[in-house]
Design a protein around this nucleic acid. Structure first.
Lengths: 367, 367
DNA sequence: TTGAAAGCGCTAACAT
DNA sequence: ATGTTAGCGCTTTCAA
C-alpha cells in the first residue's frame, strides 16, 4: 500500500501495459475491461480491476482520445465571465457535464468577437461539443462552427443549430400584466444591444402583451446592457416621464433605479421598474428588483444535456428551439401607479446628464 | 479556395502527413516547422506554412500531447461558481492562460470537497498545471495534488505549495484606521467559516490593527460566508450593540446591513459596516458598501502566470506566498460614530431572530 | 473470450 | 537541414 502510494507520486503513472503485465493478460483485454465490459470474462475482469486499483491506474484520457476521437470534454463559450448573468449558467453546465463524466473547458470571449473565435478555434479540436452562451459571433460563424462540432446555442435562435431559449413572450406577458394590474397605462422599454437576439424578442413581446392589455408601449435605446447603460437611458427617460419601465436586463434596471433615485425620483412610488433575468444582485439592491426570472441554471443544464445527447448520436428533435418557462419574481421595485407627481425632476431635461453620471460611475453613485 | 473550405467542412481535418505530402517533405519537417522554427530552412518553412494554410491545417493538440506530455491546458478549480467572488478571478485566469496560448478547464466543486477531488482527479491527467482557488480540501490533499502536477493555490497559504494571497493585514489595517478616524472605539468582527485560512488571518490582523489604534476588538461567529450568514450574525450583534462591524466578506456585510435595516437600525448612521473583497454587488447595495478591495482579477492573473512559469521550468521563488496589495474602497456604509442611539432595537434580544429571518430569505427581505 | 498487431497524429532521437 | 523510425497510451480489427 504505502509502496504503491510512493510510486504513484514519484514515478510516472501506470499505463495499461503495467496493468496487463501485473494481471497476466494482454493490454487489449485490459482496455476491454474498462471500455467494453461484458466482452470479457467476469473473473478476468475482476482480477484486472483489482490489479488496476492496486496500481492506482487511471486511463489517460488524452491517449484514449486519439484512437477514438472522443475526448470527453466540452467547451462552454461565454461572452464575458465578469457578467453575473453567467454564474448560474456555468453552474448548470458544469453539473450536467459532471453527471455525464465530461470535463468542461471554459472560454471567455472578454466581450470580443475576435477573441471568441480565437479561443473557440483553439478549443475546438479538443472537445466533443460546444455550448455557445450568448455568443457575439454572427449567425454564419455559428453555423460554421456547428458544422465542425456538435453545437448548442443558448439564448438565441440560429437556423439549423439546436438552441435553448427562455420563453421571453411568456415572461414579458407576466411582467406587463403585473404592471397593468398595478394600474399602469403605459410602459417604456429600455432596450439593450441591437445585436442581441433576446432584445428583439423582448421588445416584440412587450408590444404584443401591451396591446393585449390595452397599454401603451414605448421603446428607448439601444443602450449597453450594463448598469451604466441603464443610467444613461434614464436621461432619455426623464425627458418624457413615464410611470413604468421594463429594462432589457437586470443590470440596466438597476442602473435606471439608481439614476432615477439620484434624480430624486422615487422608485417604486413614482416610477415602477422591472428587470429581466433575475441575477443574484437583483435581490440585493434597494428597492429589491421585481424581475422576470429566466431559468439560468436550467438553461446551462439542458444546453449541455442536449449537446451530449447529440454527441451521443441523437438527432436534434426539431428545428424549433427548446423553450424554458419564465416566471415573474415580484419584489419591491414595481408598485401601484401613483396619481400625483411629487418630484420636480420630471421633464427637466437639463439634469439628465448629471443623473446618468451620478449613477453610472463607481465614485459618484456611492453616496 | 472554395474547394478547400468545402473539404475542411465535410472531411476530417488534414493531418501533418497531408501537409507533408502536399509540400513534398517528411512529416518531421512539418512538425519542426511549427514546433521548433529556426531548425528548418527558411524557404522550406515558408512553403510548408503556405501549404498548411491552404489546407486549413491545425495541429491536433491531443495528438501533440501524447508524445510531449504537455497539453497546453490548465485547470482552474473553484469551490462555487455561483459565488460572485469568483467572476473576476476567472477572468484574470482566463486572460493569463490566453496570452500564453493555454486553454482553461474549469472545475466547480459545488461546495463539496468530494466533488472537488473527483473533478480534480478527472482533470488532472489532461492538464499541465492546476490553480486551486479557495479550495475546500485539507492541506494534505493539496500537497498531494501538488506532487502530481504543478499547482498554485489562491487565497491560502499551504506549506511547500506556491500560493498567491491578498495582503490581509494591510487591508485590515486600512479598514481599522478608517473606522478609527471616524471616531469609532470598538469594532466587532463577524467571522466566516472556521476552516477558512483567510478568516483566521483577517481576525488576527484586525486584533493587531485595533491594538495599534487603541480600539477594542471583538469577534462573533463563525457564520456561513453568505448573505444569510451575515443576517444570522446580526441577531448576535444586536445583543451587545456596537458602532462598527467588519465582516469576513462582502456577502456577509450585505447580510448584516440588511438585517440591521430590517431591525430599524440605520446604516451607517447608527452602525458602520465594512466588508471585504469588493465584489461586483458591493457597489450596488444601499448604502453602497465600504470594503477592503482584494485584487481579484490580479489574483487570477498572477496565479496562472506563476503556474505557467513553474510549468515552464521555473523554480518557485520562495516558500513565502506572493502577496498582492489590498486597498480600501470608501463608499457609504461606514460613517462617523454617532453619539446617541436612536433605535429602540438595540439590546432587544427578542427581536433578533426575526431580524435574521427578515434579511435572510428572499421573500421577506424584499420589501 | 482472449491475444497479436496495426494504427490514431504527432514528436524526438538518430541517421544521413 | 532533412529524412527515417520508433514510440506516446490507448483502441480496435482480425485471428486464434
Amino acid at each position: 500500500m504505502a509502496l504503491e502510494e510512493l510510486m504513484a507520486l514519484e514515478e510516472k503513472p501506470p499505463t495499461i501495459y503495467d496493468v496487463a503485465r501485473a494481471a497476466g493478460v494482454a493490454s487489449s483485454t485490459v482496455s476491454r475491461t474498462f471500455a467494453r465490459p461484458g466482452r470479457v470474462n467476469f473473473e478476468t475482469a475482476e482480477r484486472i480491476r483489482k490489479v488496476a486499483t492496486e496500481l492506482g491506474y487511471r486511463a489517460n484520457p488524452l491517449a484514449r482520445a486519439l484512437p477514438t476521437g472522443r475526448t470527453s470534454m466540452i467547451a462552454l463559450v461565454i461572452s464575458d465571465v465578469t457578467n453575473p448573468f453567467y454564474n448560474e449558467i456555468i453552474r448548470g453546465a458544469q453539473v450536467a457535464a459532471g453527471e455525464a463524466g465530461y470535463t468542461m473547458l471554459l472560454a471567455d470571449a472578454q466581450e470580443s468577437g475576435a477573441l471568441e473565435r480565437e479561443s473557440l478555434e483553439r478549443a475546438m479540436a479538443s472537445v466533443d461539443g460546444i455550448v455557445l452562451a450568448t455568443s457575439r459571433m454572427p449567425d454564419s460563424a455559428i453555423r460554421m462552427t456547428a458544422k465542425q462540432r456538435p453545437t448548442v446555442v443558448l439564448n438565441r435562435a440560429v437556423t439549423d443549430v439546436p438552441s435553448v431559449v427562455t420563453d421571453n413572450p411568456q415572461g414579458m406577458r407576466r411582467a406587463v400584466e403585473h404592471l397593468a394590474g398595478l394600474g399602469h397605462e403605459q410602459i417604456t422599454y429600455v432596450a439593450g444591444p441591437e445585436a442581441s437576439w433576446a432584445d428583439g424578442v423582448r421588445w416584440a413581446s412587450l408590444r404584443d402583451a401591451a396591446a393585449h392589455s390595452e397599454l401603451q408601449a414605448r421603446r428607448i435605446g439601444p443602450y449597453p446592457p450594463t448598469v451604466a447603460g441603464g443610467a444613461e437611458a434614464t436621461a432619455e427617460l426623464a425627458r418624457q416621464p413615464v410611470t413604468a419601465v421594463i429594462a432589457y436586463n437586470d443590470l440596466m434596471a438597476i442602473g435606471v433605479i439608481r439614476a432615477l433615485t439620484a434624480l430624486g425620483v422615487r422608485v417604486p412610488r413614482e416610477v415602477s421598474v422591472v428587470g429581466f433575468d433575475n441575477i443574484f444582485a437583483a435581490e440585493l439592491v434597494t428597492p429589491a428588483l421585481t424581475t422576470v426570472a429566466t431559468p439560468l441554471r436550467a438553461m446551462g443544464l439542458t444546453g449541455v444535456r442536449n449537446l451530449l445527447a447529440i454527441v451521443g448520436g441523437a438527432r436534434p428533435r426539431s428545428p424549433e428551439p427548446v423553450t424554458l418557462p419564465a416566471g415573474l419574481v415580484v419584489r419591491g421595485s414595481a408598485a401601484h401607479r401613483s396619481r400625483k407627481r411629487t418630484s420636480p425632476a420630471w421633464g427637466t431635461t437639463s439634469v439628465s446628464g448629471s443623473a446618468a453620471k451620478a449613477a453610472g460611475s463607481t465614485e459618484a453613485g456611492s453616496r
